[in-house]
Simulated scan of single mutants.
Amino acid sequence: MGYLRGFTPWVVYGLVSSFDWRGGALAGLLTGLFLFIQDRRRGIAADAQILDVSTVVYFAGLVALAFAAPDSPLKPYADVLSFGWLALTAWGSLLIGRPFTLGIARLTTPPEYWDQPEFVRINVVITTVWAGAFTALGISLAVCVLADAPGWVGVAVHVAGLAAPVTFTSLYSARAQARAEALAAAS
C-alpha cells in the first residue's frame, strides 16, 4: 500500500485546514515538497511521482490563493477543489496512457512484468477506480457545501469515498497477483 504515502500531504492539509485553511495549504505544500525531494534523492522514477508532482502544483496554487485572498469565496470549496484536482490528475494520467498507479506499482513489482499487457490493464482499472472515487467525492462534497450539511456528513463522505478505492486496490491487486502466480506455477 505504498501508494497511500502519496496522499500524506492531503491528509496533513485536511487536519491543519480544519483550524486554518492557509496553514493547511502551506502544510500540504511543505509535506508534498518534502516527500517529493525525499523520493528524488532515493532515485524514485518520475513515472512513480505523478501524484507527487500534481500535489505540489496544486498546493502551490492553493497557498497562493489562500494568502492572496484569505476570504476567497472558494474557501468553503477547498475540499471540493482538492478532489477535483485529484480527479483531473487521475483522469489525465489515463488520457495520456500513463495511469498514475503504474509507476507506483513498478516500485514493488519485478521488472519482467512491467511491459506485460495484463500489468498495464490492472493499473488502468485501479486508476479508473481512483479517478471515479475522486470525482464522486468532489461532487458529494460540493453537495455537502451547497446543502450546508453538518461537518460529520463531510467526514463520513471522506471516509466512505476513500475507503472504497483503498479496499478495491488492495483486493484487486492481491487477486491479480494470485492469478499471476497460479499461471506461473501452471507453466
Rank of each mutant, 00 (worst) to 15 (best):
R175M: 08
S18D: 06
V124L: 00
G138T: 07
D39H: 07
G154F: 08
L15M: 09
L183H: 04
V124G: 00
I122N: 09
A147R: 09
L30S: 02
Y58V: 11
L4C: 06
C144G: 09
T109W: 01
T55S: 15
I50D: 05
V145K: 02
F19C: 11
P73M: 04
T31P: 00
V80I: 13
V63Q: 00
A147N: 10
F83H: 15
G161E: 06
P150S: 12
G2D: 12
F67A: 09
P117S: 08
A133F: 03
F168D: 03
V157H: 04
A164H: 00
V153N: 05
V80T: 15
T167Q: 06
A68M: 12
L137F: 10
D79P: 07
F19N: 11
I96S: 15
I50R: 06
L137H: 08
V124I: 01
D71G: 14
H158P: 03
A87W: 02
W152C: 06
L141K: 02
S17T: 09
D148M: 06
S82P: 01
G32Q: 05
G103C: 12
F59E: 12
M1A: 15
A60T: 15
T135M: 02
I37S: 00
A68L: 14
T89S: 14
A156I: 12
A25W: 04
